[in-house]
Write a protein that binds this DNA or RNA. Structure first.
Length: 294
DNA sequence: GCGTCCAGGTCTACC
DNA sequence: GGTAGACCTGGACGC
């Protein structure tokens, strides 16, 4: 069955899909710039394989499964979450429009960062991005999903639950996922979430100030400044920069004449965007990325 | 082939 | 609070 999901004015499917690398990590499957496949654990029965495409002012969901009303509502909720369809970008776009160099962000409908259906999945993936190449992150993600994800009808797999992950020994994460020293972090995280000691989903609507929420995130082993700030952006906090080696080198190349600079200089450059500085930075650093990906 | 470097960092010990 | 060194992996690169 196919059904459309209404999107906000100015929403750009392709921009959101290619907003960062998440679309390349299983169980996301980047088919082409206008098509994303995603296996979704909808909470009842076997997972659903969804094909998501952007068509005009709508985002269209296609699936071979027959969805009852409850399932369809669940799918729509998760898709709206992943594509940030309910995020109010008006204040951000107004701020960007005021700066000629950044005005393209508003006119192109950039700034909605693709995320996973759950904060837990984003948290696991953030840990898997640290201190390794993107190719290694993709391998880890694929191995984890391939080994532990619940299988959909077409053989694709969903992202594993914390319980499924907690049921595996540390050796699974070293030998199967090839996570290296991160293995113990992933195991501990899964245990703590499965036990209810940590509730990553609560970070979404948290009223804690950003600095305090960041401290809470960093209590997860394997989550440092970069991973926490990356997660903060994914839960809608943009007053952090999430500087990593790629951003540092891209800033040096595009904004500093090819010369390395310290983090303070990068921070100063985006200070004017206040609570939106992290999102302004990311859009700025990926300005030409979209064209390169297509 | 083989060795080295390093990447979308973090942790711990030490000062 | 700041810093040095260790930590897994695997692709890229030079030889």
């Amino acid at each position: 069955m196919n059904f459309p999901i209404k999107v906000p004015p100015g929403f750009d499917f392709k921009r959101t899909l290619s907003s960062h690398g998440w679309c390349e990590l299983r169980p996301f499957e980047f088919v082409d710039s206008g098509t994303l496949v995603r296996v979704l654990d909808a909470g009842e029965g076997e997972p659903l394989t969804l094909t998501l495409t952007g068509e005009g002012a709508a985002l269209v969901v296609s699936t071979k499964a027959r969805l009852n009303q409850r399932l369809r509502a669940r799918v729509e909720r998760d898709v709206r979450h992943m594509f940030r369809l309910d995020d109010d970008m008006s204040e951000f776009y107004a701020a960007m429009s005021a700066e000629p160099e950044f005005a393209w962000i508003a006119s192109d409908g950039a700034g909605r960062l693709l995320r996973s259906p759950t904060v837990y999945e984003d948290l696991v993936k953030s840990i898997m991005t640290t201190n390794c190449t993107w190719a290694v992150t993709k391998n880890m993600s694929a191995a984890l999903v391939g080994a532990l994800g619940q299988e959909a009808k077409d053989g694709r797999r969903a992202f594993p639950t914390p319980e499924a992950m907690a049921g595996q020994p540390v050796g699974f994460y070293t030998e199967v996922v090839r996570a290296g020293y991160r293995a113990a972090y992933l195991k501990e995280l899964a245990d703590r979430v499965a036990d209810g000691e940590i509730e990553p989903e609560s970070w979404l609507g948290s009223e804690l100030p950003t600095a305090e929420l960041k401290r809470e995130m960093k209590r997860v082993k394997g989550v440092g400044d970069y991973a926490a700030e990356n997660l903060l952006k994914l839960v809608g906090r943009y007053d952090v920069l999430a500087l990593d080696s790629w951003v540092r080198s891209t800033f040096a190349r595009t904004r500093n004449g090819g010369r390395k600079c310290d983090d303070k200089k990068i921070a100063r450059f985006y200070t004017r965007f206040k609570s939106w500085r992290g999102l302004a930075l990311w859009c700025d650093m990926t300005h030409h990325w979209f064209e390169e990906k297509n």
